[in-house]
Amino acid sequence: MRNILAIAGREIQTYFVSPLAYVAIFFFVFVCGFIFTLAIYTGQTEADMAPLFHSMVFVSLMVAPVLTMGLIAQETNSGSIELLMTKPVRDAEVAVGKFLGAMAIYIFILLVSLEFPIMYEVWGNPDWGMILSGYIGLLACGIAFMAIGTFASALTDNQIAAWLIGTALLLFFWLVGWLGYSSTTWLTDVAKRLSIYENFGDFARGIVDGKNVLYFLSLAVVFLFMSVRALENRRTV
């Protein structure tokens, strides 16, 4: 646990000495803020966060691979991974530590985004139960996104490649639900259940459903496990 925290702590430090964290925060707040403003100017009359939550989760999906692309790929590329992996740390501790580092930045971004519901509160009367459920959903999504990004970063020593792989994987899980709109067979049902979009929907509507939480957590566990395997594999080549 100590090792995980040490590695996560170093990652957080790195984010804030590089422009990456600031740019990611700026990107998230700017895009979401733009959508927020547009919605109000184009006739949204209720202090309803649900449409914004859907935008926020998609912007998260774009930001996540940027936050995670360097986690392992950069260390592999610079060679600093050699000093890390010859320390008495398990591969799993490396993967989880780095994942948590990215998670911390993501949580920070979510905290900054609280300005939107606060604005609703100042000028309107929002449903805080729904906002809470939406944020739980965003957090659950983030856990899955960061795990997928960590995996992508463990696959290659090129950050751009890691970013692309991460984005592709996330878009797959985002779009796969569309299959479910065409017809209803067991396959399309599975596709819908695999979809990030479908699983996030309930959170945005104010429902925290255990099976949706479980979906995001299992996605995270699977991809973290694969990250560890990818790290182990790096040792053998």
Binding site: R2, N3, R10, T14, S78, S80, E82, L84
Partner: peptide
């Protein structure tokens, strides 16, 4: 204690921070 051929150390860290980080990883 290992010194690899290419001393690739995190360039953004301070010497003091880096040594503390390594100490932590050694428990």
């Amino acid at each position: 204690g290992y010194v690899p051929e290419h001393p690739a150390i995190y360039p953004e860290m301070r010497v003091s921070q880096y040594l503390a980080y390594c100490g932590k990883l050694y428990g």
